[in-house]
Simulated scan of single mutants.
Amino acid sequence: MATIAELKAALKETLEARGVLGQLKARIRAEVFNALDDKSETRPALSHENLLINELIREYLEFNNYRYTASVLVAESGQPEVPLDRQFMTNELNVVEDPSSRSVPLLYGLLSHFLKSSGEKGDKLFLKSSAAPTTSR
């Protein structure tokens, strides 16, 4: 007869093999965060930049089936529950997509662009801040 420790080990191994254990842990973390989150506390308004960045990250997380992580991002950041429209995002980011790029998150396309357009060695993209974000997250 198997001991309790052996049963626990077998159950853990089975849940890990099925990919369920990680999902359960993420779900528990999300639920604990939601329980501790004070809904009565007002959050500062999201800056336009933070709204776009959070949406890029959410799209990436959901594409990769990190749904619980995405739910924590939305809850913690104050991002709207309904995702921003893809066309709105491309317009705001001044991005033109081809049909194949529409099947992956915008973040992949942006990264691909910068990896491919690095050009000659030593070419660097000069970044400057358009404005300081209105919130510090």
Results as ranks from 00 to 15, higher is better:
residue 3 T to D: 08
residue 6 E to A: 15
residue 7 L to M: 11
residue 9 A to C: 03
residue 10 A to G: 07
residue 11 L to F: 10
residue 14 T to K: 13
residue 15 L to I: 08
residue 18 R to A: 15
residue 18 R to V: 09
residue 19 G to P: 04
residue 20 V to F: 05
residue 21 L to Y: 08
residue 21 L to Q: 02
residue 25 K to Q: 14
residue 27 R to Y: 10
residue 31 E to C: 05
residue 32 V to L: 12
residue 35 A to C: 05
residue 37 D to Y: 11
residue 39 K to S: 12
residue 40 S to H: 02
residue 40 S to W: 03
residue 40 S to L: 13
residue 44 P to M: 02
residue 45 A to I: 06
residue 46 L to G: 05
residue 48 H to N: 09
residue 53 I to C: 08
residue 55 E to K: 03
residue 58 R to V: 02
residue 58 R to I: 02
residue 61 L to G: 05
residue 61 L to T: 03
residue 61 L to C: 04
residue 64 N to M: 05
residue 65 N to G: 01
residue 67 R to G: 14
residue 69 T to A: 06
residue 70 A to Y: 02
residue 70 A to P: 03
residue 71 S to F: 00
residue 72 V to N: 00
residue 72 V to M: 09
residue 74 V to Q: 08
residue 75 A to G: 12
residue 76 E to V: 00
residue 76 E to W: 01
residue 77 S to C: 04
residue 79 Q to V: 06
residue 82 V to M: 09
residue 82 V to R: 07
residue 86 R to G: 03
residue 87 Q to N: 07
residue 88 F to H: 01
residue 88 F to W: 07
residue 89 M to Q: 01
residue 90 T to F: 01
residue 94 N to D: 09
residue 98 D to S: 11
residue 100 S to K: 05
residue 100 S to C: 04
residue 101 S to D: 04
residue 102 R to Y: 01
residue 107 L to A: 14
residue 108 Y to P: 01
residue 109 G to C: 08
residue 114 F to N: 08
residue 115 L to W: 00
residue 119 G to C: 04
residue 120 E to D: 12
residue 120 E to K: 13
residue 120 E to V: 10
residue 122 G to C: 05
residue 124 K to R: 09
residue 124 K to E: 14
residue 125 L to D: 08
residue 126 F to C: 06
residue 127 L to R: 01
residue 128 K to P: 04
residue 128 K to Y: 13
residue 129 S to V: 15
residue 132 A to K: 07
residue 133 P to E: 13
residue 134 T to W: 02
residue 135 T to Q: 14
